[in-house]
């Protein structure tokens, strides 16, 4: 019988110098397309990764004060929702599908969009809005979720995310 050795100490990455960086481009504004970015961004922050979320085109709804709390899910055109397409297009189905999905998300303890953004910002995440989308939709900083750091153009984004891993959603 050999003497037990001292336990290994987990590597929490504290010593890795060049920090890992993740940039997520959020281009879709439906409820089901907002969550992948929020979940992955949040998870990366919990792993000590620097995270930048860039909202563009339809993804603008996720950070537009007027819209962010009312993102919707529709089974139209989505065969994985397993609803016959003529039924999916009936009036009221989107509302039903949306409230069902919101309930499923809440049931597993995952926050609603606004609260999730609060958590991401509290964890050190950075939120950016796309200049071209803002111009097209005539939206200004005051129309956007308060923690959005700025409306930036595509070049700014490319410059800012040098060396980052990139996700386009």
């Amino acid at each position: 019988m050999t003497e037990p050795k001292p336990a290994p100490v987990p590597d929490f990455g504290d010593d890795s110098e060049a920090g890992r960086k993740l940039a997520i481009i959020c281009s879709k504004g439906s409820l089901d397309m907002a969550y992948p970015a929020l979940v992955l961004g949040n998870a990366a922050l919990g792993e000590g990764v620097e995270v930048h979320l860039f909202f563009t085109f339809w993804g603008f709804d996720i950070i537009t004060k007027k819209r962010m709390h009312n993102l919707k899910f529709t089974p139209v055109g989505n065969t994985a929702a397993h609803v016959p397409q003529p039924v999916a297009a009936l009036p009221g189905i989107t509302a039903v599908a949306t409230s069902m999905m919101k309930k499923q998300i809440a049931d597993i303890g995952v926050p609603a969009v606004g609260e999730f953004l609060d958590q991401i910002v509290a964890s050190g995440g950075h939120l950016w809005a796309c200049r071209m989308s803002a111009d097209m939709m005539k939206l200004r900083m005051e129309d956007l979720y308060d923690a959005v750091e700025g409306i930036i153009n595509a070049s700014d984004f490319i410059e800012m995310t040098a060396g980052a891993q990139l996700l386009f959603i």
């Binding site: 929490f12 990455g13 504290d14 792993e47 000590g48 958590q119 509290a122 964890s123």
Partner: peptide, 12 residues
């Protein structure tokens, strides 16, 4: 708050 947890237990 979450911000403080990140200060108390940095990075992860």
């Amino acid at each position: 708050d979450i911000k403080t947890l990140f200060v108390l237990f940095p990075k992860k």
